[in-house]
């Protein structure tokens, strides 16, 4: 199926998405990678407030290139998601509904997606000039000292992703690997 969805995500929207669906996302994404994840989880563990409410939000595992003058955003695309696996279940427990990255996730993340009714999207890696064209507004939001690892708040329009792992245990990486494997 092909869907156009809007952020923040609600439970009904998440529940209808199935691994393999192609999606266009319109709304807000927050970039976060290794160091930002570490900081968010530390705040949660200390019982302190996060820089933004996670409820219904989508995190984009990305560290953009700097924005040239006259452009909304420099090149931006997904980084390898598995590096965030350790942090993900905690964030899902706090209301995070979606993530955009590239590559497979751990069994723990898959279980947490089912438990918290959340979804993992894959964006194409290595096509960052193309992906930046879907970003209509970008703002350096938190942790500027982290440079490319800072949190950016992005407003996107029809941002193209694929449902890689759904809230029902469906995993496109596994399914398609079996489908296209040849003896």
């Amino acid at each position: 199926m092909h869907y156009k969805i809007h952020t923040p995500l609600d439970d009904n929207t998440v529940a209808k998405l199935k691994a393999g669906d192609t999606i266009e996302i319109t709304g807000t994404l927050y970039t976060a990678r290794d160091q930002a994840h570490q900081r968010l989880v530390e705040l949660i563990q200390k019982g302190q407030a996060l820089p933004f409410g996670l409820k219904g939000q989508i995190l984009f595992y990305a560290g953009p290139a700097p924005t040239p003058p006259g452009k909304v955003m420099g090149s931006v695309g997904p980084t390898t998601s598995s590096r965030m696996d350790l942090f993900t279940p905690v964030l899902l427990a706090y209301g995070l509904k979606g993530m955009i990255g590239k590559g497979p996730r751990s069994p723990e993340v898959k279980a947490a997606l089912i438990k918290y009714n959340a979804v993992y999207f894959a964006a194409t890696g290595g096509v960052a000039a193309l992906l930046s064209s879907y970003i209509k507004k970008a703002e350096l939001f938190a942790y500027p000292e982290l440079g490319p690892e800072a949190i950016y708040r992005l407003e996107v329009e029809n941002f193209p992703v694929v449902v890689a792992i759904d809230a029902w245990g469906g995993d496109l990486y596994d399914q398609n690997r079996e489908l296209y494997k040849e003896a």
């Binding site: 393999g20 192609t22 990305a62 560290g63 953009p64 290139a65 040239p68 452009k71 420099g74 090149s75 931006v76 695309g77 194409t124 890696g125 290595g126 096509v127 960052a128 000039a129 193309l130 930046s132 064209s133 490319p148 193209p160 694929v162 496109l172 398609n176």
Partner: peptide, 25 residues
């Protein structure tokens, strides 16, 4: 999905040149 991704790669290559942006972030 694979075809779609390969088409994105071709499109991205053109855009990187015309917009003077890096191919990958």
């Amino acid at each position: 999905t694979g075809k779609e991704i390969m088409e994105q790669i071709i499109k991205n290559a053109g855009l990187a040149v015309s917009e003077q942006l890096p191919i990958c972030q």
